[in-house]
């Protein structure tokens, strides 16, 4: 099972470090990372494998959301299926 972690906000030092650190704490394996600037906002998207995560999915979502507040970014964790079903035929 895989999830997409999206991080949006003002670019600054250490974002990738903090988010990937939180992933490691939950044993979520980062499969791919891509980042870009959309409409003057920094956007980072991570594809993570959550098959063996140590917490349940809900807890991971909450943890990331709290981390986002701490570092001044908006972080969402969503199941990969939702994107695949919407954007792939």
């Amino acid at each position: 099972m895989r999830a997409i972690i999206s991080v949006v906000g003002q670019d600054r030092v250490g974002i990738l470090n903090r988010v990937s650190g939180a992933c490691a704490e939950c044993n979520a394996n980062i499969v791919d990372v891509t980042q870009s600037v959309l409409q003057n906002m920094f956007v980072m998207v991570m594809l993570v494998d959550i098959t063996d995560i140590r917490v349940d999915f809900d807890a991971l979502t909450k943890k990331m959301s709290a981390l986002g507040e701490e570092i001044g970014m908006v972080i969402h964790v969503m199941h990969e299926d939702i994107f695949n079903s919407m954007h792939r035929i």
Partner: peptide, 16 residues
Amino acid sequence: MLNIRDIMETITMIQE
């Protein structure tokens, strides 16, 4: 991997 714009589009639809 999915296109970053597609991902942001889905998130914007739900959040905003």
